[in-house]
């Protein structure tokens, strides 16, 4: 994500720069570690890291995104970790690469807040089986197992009611995956889909549960099938992860010059978006 910028409205109203650290340069920025976006980044999920860092900056807390590329070591001392989605081959590749990472192992062991989306969720599980039947050992940070679902991929915009304390109001996102995920005793579901049969997605599988939260240790690993990116569409979930990382959050001070409706969404007071059928109506009623 870019640093502070001054942009100008068509009307000529200047947009205020993103606030920087009140304490000046002496403060170490909060580090959001984005893992392997070149293999786990085909669904825009890198945006989750940008959302986390930007929401800290909008609160006057210096923050940065540290991108870990294929040949980079994973730092053990990051403040938050983000994994995205990817196709089968990319997922196997990412899993092989991350399984041997001492840095990531240490970060997960000490309970660093971590968001893992889709392929990322499966990689952090105990194992997953890809379409050709190969079973791959995961990192075991989430007690869950994924098998091929057979039949069509589960694709579509979904709305789900959170089952995690600290989240109120529905979560939403775009699902696009083939695997069925079963949670073990040490994982709890993140949410439950509303009327899964009527939506394109199906959550983890039969029963309409969505995502997983580790029940072991610190409970700071959150997995989900929701794209969007999920934190852009659900700012409340972003703030929950940030709270786990840095404690109570100062109030959000948004840049000036944002459309009012957008500012409301960024504050988490309105749903960020909707599907094409309801989106226009919702805007018209704004």
């Amino acid at each position: 994500m870019s640093d502070a910028r001054v942009a100008t409205f068509p009307e000529g109203i200047p947009m205020s720069p993103v606030p920087t650290s009140p304490a000046g340069d002496a403060v170490d920025p909060v580090t959001v570690v984005l893992l392997l976006p070149e293999v786990l980044g085909t669904y825009g999920d890198a945006g989750n890291a940008a959302v986390l860092a930007t929401r800290l900056r909008w609160r006057g807390i210096p923050a940065r995104v540290l991108t870990v590329g294929w040949t980079d070591a994973v730092p053990a001392d990051g403040d938050l970790y983000v994994l995205g989605g990817g196709e089968d081959a990319a997922q196997v590749l990412a899993c092989d690469r991350l399984r041997d990472s001492i840095g990531l192992r240490r970060a997960l062991d000490r309970g660093a807040p971590t968001l893992a989306v889709c392929a990322g969720l499966q990689v952090l599980g105990t194992s997953f089986t890809i379409a050709d039947g190969t079973r791959v050992a995961g990192l075991g940070a989430l007690d869950l197992e994924t098998r091929p679902g057979g039949g069509p991929r589960r694709i579509g915009d979904v709305v789900a009611d959170p089952l995690l304390e600290g989240l109120d109001g529905p979560l939403e996102g775009f699902e696009n995956h083939g695997g069925l995920t079963e949670l073990g005793p040490d994982a709890a579901p993140l949410a439950r889909l509303r009327e899964p049969a009527r939506q394109g997605g199906a959550g983890n599988g039969p029963g309409g549960l969505e995502g997983a939260v580790s029940d072991r240790g610190h409970g700071n690993v959150v997995g989900t099938y929701l794209h969007g990116p999920v934190l852009a569409r659900n700012p409340v979930l972003a703030d929950l992860l940030l709270t786990r990382a840095v404690g109570e959050l100062p109030p959000l001070v948004l840049p000036e010059g944002l459309p009012t409706a957008t500012a409301e969404r960024l504050r988490g007071r309105r749903r960020v978006c909707g599907d094409v059928r309801s989106g226009a109506r919702r805007r018209a009623g704004a």
């Binding site: 994500m1 870019s2 502070a4 910028r5 942009a7 100008t8 409205f9 068509p10 009307e11 109203i13 200047p14 947009m15 993103v18 945006g47 940008a50 959302v51 930007t54 852009a232 569409r233 948004l254 840049p255 010059g257 944002l258 459309p259 409706a261 957008t262 500012a263 969404r265 960024l266 960020v272 978006c273 094409v276 989106g279 919702r282 805007r283």
Partner: peptide, 17 residues
């Protein structure tokens, strides 16, 4: 999907209406 685009632009630090 102007609302989604607007959120994206806000996080990009790009002013818009």
């Amino acid at each position: 999907r102007a609302a989604d685009l607007s959120v994206r632009l806000a996080y990009a630090g790009v002013g818009h209406r």
